[in-house]
Simulated assay, not measured.
Amino acid sequence: MNNSKAPIGILGGTFDPVHHGHLRLAMELASELRLAQVRLIPNGRPPHREQPGATPGQRAKWIRVATAEEPLLALDDRELLRDGASYTVDTLATLHADFPDNPLCLIMGRDVFAKLPSWHEWRRLFDYAHIVLIERPGLSATLAPEAAAELSARSASDIADLHNSASGIIYSYAPPPLAISASRIRDLIANGHSPRYLLPATILDDIMDSKIYHSPNGEDY
């Protein structure tokens, strides 16, 4: 890492598959928020959504390949190695133990934050990390009352606050638009269309070789 005391970004998701939307967002945040690193953490068994189509090994491999030449980004496979459901509060606890000198910045979209009170022991998230709230044009979500109260109480507008306090701040960030989604990539492949240029070519080649997202009715493009 280029700064041993700077905050570490935590970007979780199924990464089914990882694509340029994930990677570019991570790079934007690393640069704009002066983060030491952004760690991409593929979910093991996400409790709030359907299970990934790709195997844990495939998803980890794709992130490793995609980040191999960028020191600001890294695969963190701790959730894949842990048994049981992947609760974010447990992940943050282990990250805090591994990086006690670095504030942690948990990155999530407003749509995810809106449902935060449904998460396991969600209030403890603020004991371990800041939240970087991604705001996207045209995407709005009605916040649960408890989430709205936390946003009001914890919002900060100065990047320095992320560096100078250990946890508990909510910082909102609006990245440049880049409309790419994993579900769109999977749909294109299943219907015999090309998703090229939406994700790294080496990862697309691996997906096509394994036929992981192919539909029985689809055709190779």
Rank of each mutant, 00 (worst) to 15 (best):
A179E: 15
A166H: 10
P137H: 04
S167R: 07
P7Q: 02
F113D: 04
H22F: 08
R24K: 14
L106C: 08
G84K: 09
A182F: 00
I10G: 06
D83K: 13
S4G: 01
S210N: 13
E150D: 12
I203V: 15
S183K: 11
E79C: 09
S157P: 06
L178Q: 10
A114L: 06
R82M: 07
A26D: 06
R196T: 11
N164V: 07
P137V: 02
R82E: 03
W119F: 14
A114E: 04
D76R: 03
D220P: 09
R24E: 12
F113K: 01
A174P: 12
S183C: 08
I207G: 07
A26H: 07
P56G: 09
R154Q: 05
A6H: 03
L72K: 12
A190K: 01
S210Y: 08
V112R: 13
H20C: 09
R59N: 07
P7Y: 00
G138Q: 06
G138C: 07
N2L: 13
L73Y: 05
G168P: 00
P52T: 08
A149I: 05
E79Q: 08
L198T: 05
V112W: 06
A201Y: 10
D98P: 05
I203T: 12
T202M: 14
L188N: 02
S167Y: 09
R124E: 14
R136I: 01
L106E: 03
I63Q: 02
I41N: 03
V38Y: 01
W122T: 08
F15N: 04
R49Y: 03
L178F: 11
S172C: 11
V112K: 11
G84R: 08
A60K: 06
G109E: 00
F15R: 05
S140E: 13
D98S: 15
A160E: 13
I134E: 03
Y221V: 07
G168K: 00
L199G: 01
D77A: 15
T94Y: 03
K115I: 07
L198E: 04
S155N: 10
H120M: 08
A166D: 12
A179L: 14
E69A: 14
F113V: 01
L40C: 05
N43T: 13
G138H: 09
G218Q: 07
L162M: 03
P117K: 04
L104D: 04
S194C: 12
R123Q: 15
D158C: 10
R123F: 08
P100M: 03
Q51E: 13
G109Y: 03
L95R: 00
A174H: 10
D76G: 04
D158F: 08
K5Y: 13
A74P: 01
M108T: 02
A85E: 12
V65W: 15
W122Y: 15
R124H: 14
R136G: 00
K211G: 11
F113N: 02
E150G: 04
D83G: 15
S172H: 06
R34F: 09
L95Y: 00
N3F: 06
E50N: 14
Y87P: 00
I63D: 02
E50G: 15
E146S: 11
P175D: 05
D77L: 04
P200E: 04
R196F: 00
P200R: 04
R196P: 05
L33G: 01
A66W: 03
V65R: 13
R124D: 14
A114Q: 05
E69L: 14
Q51V: 09
D83V: 09
I212Y: 01
